[in-house]
Design a binder for these strands. Structure first.
Lengths: 361, 361
DNA sequence: TTGAAAGCGCTACCAA
DNA sequence: TTGGTAGCGCTTTCAA
């Protein structure tokens, strides 16, 4: 049994010689409390070292000010990048974050019941394979669930994601325009909508343009280690590709290191494209060409949906944002003709100079 | 007002035709509930989609099963690395993590009151400048507070940290033994015990061995960007160092990229040493020589202290673990004589091959 | 083995 | 402007 602050609002009330309900009013900024009464109460609270009990408050207000975030492996660069932003932005609006990560043998479904027990005001899911029970439970309990960077078939759950199909097509065009012929796709989690859509867009566009069918490297994780391992296998095989499109930046960074380890020069002998534009993609050692997600906008939209309780009452909202190809030095320069479409951005900045992360949005 | 699961234990009780208290007993595995009564209750609960309210439970059990983690910038590689491990290990023992991050203009003191309001069972602080009010508040409320990777003067608060002074001395010996003469120290947050101790150990040992006093680069953050910026300044000055000891891996990675950007070859012209041994330190692009913290052991110890309520009742516990120098390719090889002390480890592994992060512990 | 009732600390309503 | 009181959903006595 945890021994806890014996100081309650009743103690404060006694010391200030008022009713307990008045203490509550005074400390919550109720206008109708006389200035000198409020002062007496505040003094008493300070004297006793009173800390309001948010748990008790939540029970009656039916609002915990807690947002649950269900995430996968935080080892994945993109996940920790995202998580940090979520926490900061949520705190800025007075919300707190209760984190749930899936252990290797767990799915989101296993975590949801616990999250719901804590009466979270909203639930943001940044990792999801296909699931359906979640929908039921959450609809049932009236919690606003929002999927981030993935979506569910049928649109039964609100989601905010990137238009991965179009982005995949963009990458295909970019690589073909740069004169690549022997392409490879390094897959991520096959159960994720992100992987599926990026792959589909990429493959479809290649097919449309009559390119040789690329090698698809199966893989089930988005980590650096997975990328390193997969690329090591691919690049020691017989027929070497001259460009690899990786379904995440983490995979791409691992791919670059594996390639260099094998003496392959990037981008002269091999172009590598990632996806997400995590901060590390910009680091000089990699200078990764990648698809940038409008992360700020996506996170803002997600938070808004999660906080808007009517979202759960009304129909689910599905939002989709476009990605942008950010061209750096891990890829061969495109053909001079300028055939590449409009949604491309050449990043000439080198490293950073000021404090904090540079925002290139 | 969030509309929430109208289903309470009372609803279940009605449907199962028992008293509400019996529902509580049955669902909490009380032995004295008749098997068939329990079954009826479980059926009713399932039929209604009942989810226990952890908030209400906490109010009476005085235990939330929530551990608060107060952290700094998760952008810092070490912080996200640590955070992930904390979450996983805490979840494994049935605890959940409520996260608090300090905004740029906030200190730990600003976050503590909120954390305490949520009646966390324990509080782990992974970011801390000097503070004292925290001590008072936490002692007062009986919450077990544990500082991770830092400590407080006077030992008034429990802490788990690394013996940074000794580690700093180790690095000094290592660099001198490798034949370096023009040394630099890249500082981190001047208010942190980590920076102070690492610097002190390093400087003291250099002085003891009669080395030239190193350049100290002032700096107040542990990020890659800060390292890049600081190193860019340092390395464009007149008198170039031939070795830099960075107070964190994040700083070291930025330093390496800045140096290479200036055409400086590592380690031939410049040795770089980091601190923490985050996963990225092992990445081929950097292959950073660094001081490894016994992270697993430190985290386990921290969790144990945080969960052990008696820790707050009794005297604070201060634990300190030794670091290990992991030698990779960002530093010139040491002199053949083998003058380096025993706590050194040469990491010859290249990249990784299996799934998941390789554990080199 | 189960029921009845108290009460965790707070907010919110209705009177005064 | 303040006091009195009900009650959020649950656990935990004490009786039966």
């Amino acid at each position: 049994m945890v021994r806890r602050s014996a100081v309650t609002s009743l103690d404060v009330a006694k010391l200030a010689r008022v009713n307990q309900s008045t203490v509550s009013r005074a400390l919550n900024g109720d206008e109708k409390v006389a200035a000198k009464t409020r002062q007496r109460i505040q003094d008493a609270a300070a004297a006793l070292g009173y800390t309001p009990n948010a748990i008790a408050r939540s029970l009656i207000t039916r609002q915990t000010n807690i947002i649950g975030i269900v995430t996968a492996d935080i080892t994945i660069p993109f996940q920790s990048y995202i998580l940090e932003k979520f926490i900061q932005k949520l705190q800025a609006v007075g919300k707190h974050v209760l984190i749930f990560t899936a252990a290797p043998d767990q799915t989101v479904d296993d975590l949801l019941p616990t999250a719901l027990q804590y009466q979270v005001d909203g639930l943001i899911v940044t990792s999801a394979t296909l699931f359906s029970k979640a929908l039921y439970d959450c609809n049932h309990s009236g919690v606003a669930v929002v999927l981030f960077n993935r979506y569910m078939e049928g649109g039964f759950v609100s989601s905010v994601s990137c238009d991965n199909v179009t982005a995949g097509r963009m990458v295909a065009d970019f690589l073909l325009d740069a004169g690549h012929h022997r392409l490879a796709y390094l897959a991520g989690d096959p159960d994720s909508s992100t992987n599926r859509d990026r792959q589909q867009g990429f493959m479809t566009r290649l097919w449309e343009r009559g390119a040789v069918k690329p090698v698809v490297v199966e893989n089930d994780r988005y980590t650096y280690d997975a990328g390193y391992a997969a690329a090591s296998r691919l690049l020691t095989g017989g027929d070497l590709p001259d460009a690899i499109f990786c379904s995440s930046d983490g995979l791409a960074l691992g791919t670059i290191d594996a390639a260099r380890e094998l003496g392959i020069v990037i981008p002269d002998e091999l172009s590598v494209v990632g996806f997400d534009d995590v901060p590390m993609a910009r680091w000089n050692a990699y200078s990764l060409t990648t698809v940038r997600l409008p992360v700020e906008a996506m996170i803002d939209a997600t938070i808004q949906l999660a906080l808007d309780r009517s979202a759960s009452a009304g129909a689910p909202v599905v939002k989709r944002f476009p990605g942008t190809l950010v061209q750096r030095k891990s890829t061969r320069a495109p053909a001079p003709a300028g055939l590449v479409g409009g949604n491309t951005h050449i990043d000439t900045s080198v490293g950073v100079t000021g404090r904090g992360r540079k925002t290139e949005e």
